[in-house]
């Protein structure tokens, strides 16, 4: 399905390094993936694995130390001219992980949601601007009366929806949704997931979905990449990944998915993944295709084992 679609974003050999005094920390290394127009691609992995860092690198908030990011074939990392910069900001929006920290506490919701509209003059009259804000608020399940209120008057989940409204009002082509629903209760989660799907059906929106819960990811994504300590260790279509979860880290994530069933949860066994020895000299690991479209970070001896395990 994905093959005949156009690539909207290409991430090639991406590396992001943080410098802290003399210490250098490579938060993301050798990340390779493409996003196809209209698909939902999910990045899952544990806390600190570099998911947000990748999202922020695409948005140009984090500088990259190696590799390339292409949007519609055009390089968007590193130094950009003003026009390209605006083009990127206009078309790629992000819903931030931390709803409280990402909203200006002194501004009204009306102002927050329409800031991007103002920057890009996306309306003809103030009435039109306000209408867009109200529509965006309603589309995320908030009320018109909320427009005149301030962020601190809202609960955590309500604030997250304001963040989604702020992104969607810009009608972006690519949405980076950084854990957009983990702060929400299940019923709103369902609404927001349906909402993202609806936006996608209607506008062909491409979504980079960042999450840590594979049950949510299974439901929403076309393809999934599993990231561990800054490195993508497995990538496949959703169906394939759930059918043949090969990497022990993927298996450990699957074992941890919370199930809404007290009997099962109270007897649950976690598969803990504590990393694998790297024998980089004799049998180094690399990014390999185990089945068409199913990639895994493995060395030759592991590949033999993985090939034996897959069921077609």
């Amino acid at each position: 399905m994905a093959e005949n679609k156009e690539k909207i974003l290409e991430v090639k050999n991406l590396e992001v390094t943080f410098k802290n005094g003399k210490k250098e920390f490579v938060a993301v290394q050798d990340a390779n993936f493409d996003l196809y127009e209209g698909e939902t691609f999910s990045l899952v992995g544990e806390s600190g694995s570099g998911k947000t860092t990748i999202g922020r690198a695409i948005l140009r908030i984090n500088p990259t130390s190696k590799g390339e990011i292409l949007y519609k074939g055009k390089k968007i990392n590193g130094k950009l001219d003003k026009e390209t910069d605006r083009w990127v900001i206009r078309n790629i929006q992000m819903v931030f992980q931390d709803p409280a920290a990402s909203l200006n506490e002194r501004a009204t919701i009306d102002y927050i949601v329409s800031e991007g509209l103002s920057n890009f003059h996306m309306y003809h009259s103030d009435a039109e601007r306000h209408q867009k804000v109200v529509d965006a608020l309603k589309s995320v399940g908030l009320l018109e009366e909320h427009a005149s209120r301030y962020p601190h008057e809202f609960s955590g989940g309500q604030r997250q929806r304001i963040g989604i409204a702020r992104a969607m009002v810009m009608e972006p082509k690519l949405l980076i949704a950084d854990e957009p629903i983990s702060a929400l209760d299940v019923s709103i989660r369902a609404q927001v997931l349906n909402l993202l799907k609806k936006f996608q059906r209607e506008t062909g929106l491409t979504i980079l979905f960042i999450a840590h819960d594979l049950s949510v990811v299974r439901y929403i994504s076309d393809r999934i990449a599993v990231i561990h300590k800054g490195r993508i260790v497995e990538m496949a279509s959703t169906q394939e990944l759930f059918k043949n979860p090969l990497h022990p880290y993927t298996q450990s994530l699957l074992s941890a998915v919370p199930m809404p069933d007290p009997q099962i949860e109270k007897n649950k066994k976690l598969l803990i993944y504590s990393g694998m020895e790297e024998d980089s000299k004799t049998d180094p690991r690399s990014w390999q295709e185990v089945l068409p479209g199913h990639y895994i970070y493995a060395n030759e001896s592991e590949m033999v084992e993985y090939r034996n395990k897959v069921t077609l």
Binding site: S187, R189, Y219
Partner: peptide, 25 residues
């Protein structure tokens, strides 16, 4: 409604069950 809207129970390609409407002001 809460239990019905769990993504674990969701069927891919179909909308998840969502409690209709919004809570009261």
């Amino acid at each position: 409604g809460l239990l019905s809207s769990l993504p674990q129970l969701g069927i891919k390609g179909e909308d998840l069950y969502a409690i209709p409407g919004t809570p009261p002001s």
